[in-house]
């Protein structure tokens, strides 16, 4: 089958490659861009480990083909920290609150939570649980992750107020 050329901005950098149409966005990021922070758990939309932002919206990168993201702006876990390497508020909160153990699920959680708190800076407990429902973690038991979301929300609100 014929390859197609795709071009997208990934974490601010233009990436271009010739790809098979069946190459998922996740595999494009991992194999063509060598950005292996985007993890693949289930590859059919259930676990959330592969979550990235496409034009600002958190989506499953295993449920999109790279060709569909032609022209898009993509943010992966590698693009979440500040340019000088300082952790983002969400990342720092995950560390502080023991929101991770093995870390396999963490990129998906951090990207999802980053998008969620941008759209809903003052979430209720229930809204936080709802937002986290699309990401699975086999290690932490979720309590640390839930605390991390609340802590990050507080930090971000303070920063916005300051």
């Amino acid at each position: 089958m014929s390859e197609r050329s795709v071009r997208m901005t990934v974490n601010g950098e233009v990436r271009q490659a010739s790809v098979e149409p069946r190459l998922t966005l996740a595999d494009f990021l991992r194999e063509k861009c060598h950005l292996t922070g985007t993890h693949l758990g289930c590859e059919h939309g259930v676990c959330g480990a592969c979550t990235v932002m496409v034009d600002g919206a958190a989506v499953r990168s295993c449920l999109a083909f790279a060709v569909q993201a032609d022209g898009a702006e993509v943010t992966t876990i590698e693009g979440i920290a500040h340019p000088d390497g300082e952790l983002s508020a969400v990342q720092a909160a995950f560390r502080d609150c023991h929101g991770l153990q093995c870390g396999f699920c963490t990129p998906g959680f951090v990207v999802s939570v980053t998008a969620f708190l941008r759209d809903n800076p003052g979430p209720s407990d229930e809204e936080v649980l709802d937002a986290l429902s699309g990401n699975l973690c086999r290690c932490t038991g979720y309590q640390g992750i839930i605390r991390a979301v609340h802590q990050a929300a507080g930090t971000l609100r303070e920063a916005a107020g300051a």
Binding site: G45, G48, T51, A57, A58, V59, R60, L63, A64, S112, F116, D130, A131, S133, G134
Partner: peptide, 12 residues
């Protein structure tokens, strides 16, 4: 709408 999957699914 909020009962459909998760917000990441509804985004696409």
């Amino acid at each position: 709408t909020p009962l459909i999957g998760h917000f990441q699914i509804r985004n696409r």
